[in-house]
Design a protein around this nucleic acid. Sequence first.
DNA 1: TTGCTTGCAAATTTTTTGCAAAAAC
DNA 2: GTTTTTGCAAAAAATTTGCAAGCAA
Lengths: 144, 144
Amino acid sequence: MRRAARKRTTRQLEQVFKALEGDHTHPFAHEIYRRVHKRLPRISLATVYRNLHSLVDEGKIRTLLLDEQGARFDPETSQHDHFVCERCGRVVDLFLRQTRPVDLSSLAKQGYVVTTHSLTVHGLCQICAARRRTSRSQRPARKA
Amino acid sequence: MRRAARKRTTRQLEQVFKALEGDHTHPFAHEIYRRVHKRLPRISLATVYRNLHSLVDEGKIRTLLLDEQGARFDPETSQHDHFVCERCGRVVDLFLRQTRPVDLSSLAKQGYVVTTHSLTVHGLCQICAARRRTSRSQRPARKA
DNA sequence: TTGCTTGCAAATTTTTTGCAAAAAC
DNA sequence: GTTTTTGCAAAAAATTTGCAAGCAA
């Protein structure tokens, strides 16, 4: 599934990248489409997908597979990890490995060649954990 | 997306579980359908999906999101990690955390509540790494 | 001008759902 | 006998593709 390298810069590509740049919410393709569509009302979702793929191929953004519903996109290209909140669904960047690197040395000894790794932590984010603490003794809410 | 708990045992459910039991290849739903279909030729893919979900809900199997093409299923329910080979696509179970637990204590200190985590390592599996070593100086092969 | 990229619509792929019939208990 | 589960077909949701027209270089 190798795609031909992109050769031209277009407004569509620029806007797709800008819609993601500096964003920490790890949006799905459709949300990126929604954002770009405000500036380029004629853009199609297919073009958003094509440009997201180009950006991934060029290493400018990354794909995240965290939900059954589809791929998320992340402009943070440094090696990092993610926290997924079970309650609110938020995905938070973690930089654990900067202070607590995962020890994969045993794999090399077993004959594996390690390129990258990704760590995903599931649980309650700071906000949802605090909320639960506050409402500790209340009976389970219906539908919030 | 909460499903009602299953109340009856059926041949379909049993066969879906048996098709996965003891398997270490982390198959997609369609491959499980293919296997079960040999024993129950009238089963439908929809039933395989429904039964896979039941088994996940009951904690008998787990869902793995590793590929863009869809979910894999894993009968290994103990806490473990995965290695994905970039060349052959194989997914191998890893039990790194039994000897090298990932240190997530800093998250608790920051107010997160951690439920589980998953670590996925990418690279070359033992077989593909060995093959590369053997054919080190050869020009890139076309189509294997 | 040349040929890459886009927009549109249709196609694909994976997974889910409605409903009558079949099976479980 | 009642209620759950199945099979089938159709629906949904996410993503990809063919192709003529538009745009970048």
